[in-house]
Amino acid sequence: MKREDSKIPICEVSVIHEDIINKVKEAMPEETKLYDLAELFKVLGDTTRIKILYALFESEMCVCDIAALLGMSQSAVSHQLRILRQNKLVKFRKEGKVVYYSLADDHVKKIFEQGFDHINE
């Protein structure tokens, strides 16, 4: 039924398919898990971080090399790497004074592959 004053459809029934609601409610992850997932997508919502992750698909790299590749300052790259590290998307190792970054695990690459599959449909 439509509201006369605004022509916006409204639902006058509070529950139509209670069995579906209960099934979905049971399957719904905890609120904290949904929050963490939303935060992950926020981190992935930055083009610079996407470029850094994509570079790390190809090879482990140091900050200097990533900065040169992307035409950015080392400070800007370090800032983005810190965010990626805090969100468990990259890991690092030290060799002398040089710090090398790589993907944290294969999940990161799978997320990208799924994303590319989706946008290429």
Rank of each mutant, 00 (worst) to 15 (best):
P29I: 01
P29M: 03
E31L: 13
T32P: 02
Y35W: 08
L37T: 07
L37P: 02
A38D: 11
L40M: 08
K42R: 13
K42I: 09
L44W: 05
L44Q: 06
L44K: 07
G45E: 05
T47L: 15
T47Y: 15
T47C: 14
T47R: 15
R49E: 09
K51M: 13
Y54A: 12
A55V: 08
A55G: 12
L56W: 09
L56I: 05
L56C: 08
F57K: 09
E58W: 14
S59P: 01
S59N: 07
E60Y: 09
M61W: 13
M61Y: 12
M61T: 11
C62Q: 12
C62P: 12
V63K: 15
C64Q: 15
C64E: 15
D65K: 13
A68L: 13
G71Q: 04
S75H: 12
S75D: 04
A76F: 04
A76L: 02
V77Y: 10
L81W: 03
L81P: 00
L81Q: 01
I83L: 04
L84C: 00
Q86T: 02
Q86C: 04
N87Q: 01
K88E: 11
K88L: 08
V90T: 00
K91L: 05
R93P: 01
R93C: 01
K94R: 08
K94M: 06
K94Y: 09
K94I: 01
E95H: 10
E95I: 03
E95V: 05
E95M: 09
G96T: 02
K97A: 05
K97T: 07
K97L: 08
V98Q: 11
V99L: 02
Y100V: 03
Y100K: 06
S102I: 04
S102Y: 09
S102A: 14
S102Q: 13
S102V: 06
L103T: 00
A104P: 02
D105H: 03
D105S: 02
D106F: 13
D106N: 14
D106R: 14
H107N: 04
K109G: 04
I111A: 00
I111R: 00
F112I: 00
E113Y: 02
Q114S: 15
Q114C: 13
